[in-house]
Amino acid sequence: MSSTIVDSAAEFDVRDYLRKEMMPHFLCPGCGHGIALRALLWAVHELGMDKDKLAVVSGIGCAGRLSAYIDANTFHVTHGRPLAYATGLALARPDLHVVVITGDGDCLAIGGNHLIHACRRNLKLTCLMLNNEVYGMTGGQVSPTTSETRLTTTTPLGNSEPNFDACALAAAAGASFVGREVTHHVPKLKELIRAGLAHPGFAFVEVLSDCTEIFGRKNELGSSAEMVLRQKSELRPSAYRDTVNTPFRSNDLPTGVLSKRDRPEYGAAYRKAAAAQRADAAAKDGARTGKGEF
């Protein structure tokens, strides 16, 4: 009788995908972004992706710093612009697998315009937005996803701005794959990212991550461990939630794959049209040369 343990985690050693000389990484103790990075690399591993063909483009912020630790082609670009850089890279190099790592501020505030157009364009890219409800890197200012009433260094009275449901935004803008997961459910998060990576168009994956040192402290959310556990107790699965009629609250977010659509992938569509044009031109040229033009 064979006795195999069904355990994909056993074959996956995250260190095989890290630039070990860069470790330990610069994130604060307990920062959820580290867990998200593991999930991404695990998904990369499971898909058997070639590190040489993997390009990670990240913006500025704690989330943006993650690319430096990945043993791949990594590009740490300007604040808010990773999707735009990635668009150029992916169009120019369709042979690469381009993944974007961005933060909530990076992606939704300064980079919001690029996000909606990336969703609309549907170029094959995977956008991993690490949402920790705050501008971690700059010391804890309010972000477009900060829940109402939360304290930040720029909302000393409690945030009174309504926040974004990034997934609803992405879906509305046309993203052909939209999903959300918490860092607490590492295997589920890995599955979601994996589905996003395998998706043949633009995939938007929001990861609910914890800024333990700054946001957690400011809002007295307890230790890193307590923050991770809170994800478990405060989030409800999408199956129980009417996404249209329930107002968005950060503690009532649907998770899992939230939207999936079959739309033409932009890069392939462009290359196809260009090839047709070239074939057409070549035919005409041939006809002309036939007439003896010199």
Partner: peptide, 17 residues
């Protein structure tokens, strides 16, 4: 169970079976 390995944000634990 690997929970520690999976949740460590710093990749400091590796569980070997």
């Amino acid at each position: 169970c690997r929970l520690c390995e999976l949740l460590c944000p710093d990749f400091a634990i590796r569980v070997h079976l």
